[in-house]
């Protein structure tokens, strides 16, 4: 079981490395953001797996947090890419 989990963790980490390649490579910012988003997902997996490994439920809080942040981050990035600005003062104008 433990070996399986370790293997899983290594695989996830490798995935992240692959995604990192996408971040480095680009070519457009959007690609990087998508990759970052996916890294966030991989991070969630990693945290989940790690908490099984260290056998502690205290890290599970992180999962939801990561999900939230990854979502907010993605939205912010997309708004930035779209308008160059995140916050609009008054959208009705």
């Amino acid at each position: 079981m433990t070996y399986f989990l370790w293997a899983a963790i290594v695989i996830v980490v490798l995935t992240m490395v692959a995604l990192l390649y996408r971040i480095v490579k680009g070519p457009t910012p959007s690609d990087r953001v998508v990759a970052l988003d996916t890294i966030g997902v991989a991070l969630i997996c990693l945290v989940g797996l790690l908490s099984v490994v260290v056998d502690s439920s205290f890290f599970l809080e992180i999962i939801l947090l990561l999900a939230i942040l990854s979502f907010v981050g993605t939205i912010a990035f997309s708004k930035f890419i779209e308008k160059g600005d995140i916050i609009t003062r008054d959208d009705s104008r």
Binding site: L65, I68, L69, F71, V72, I75, A76, K79, I86, I87, T88, R89, D90, D91, S92
Partner: peptide, 20 residues
């Protein structure tokens, strides 16, 4: 952390809508 998460919730609203 609680405070920051709350803030990010409000930020989400601001991003989705607008400040006003």
């Amino acid at each position: 952390v609680g405070g920051l998460v709350t803030a990010s919730a409000i930020v989400l609203l601001i991003i989705a809508f607008d400040l006003k």
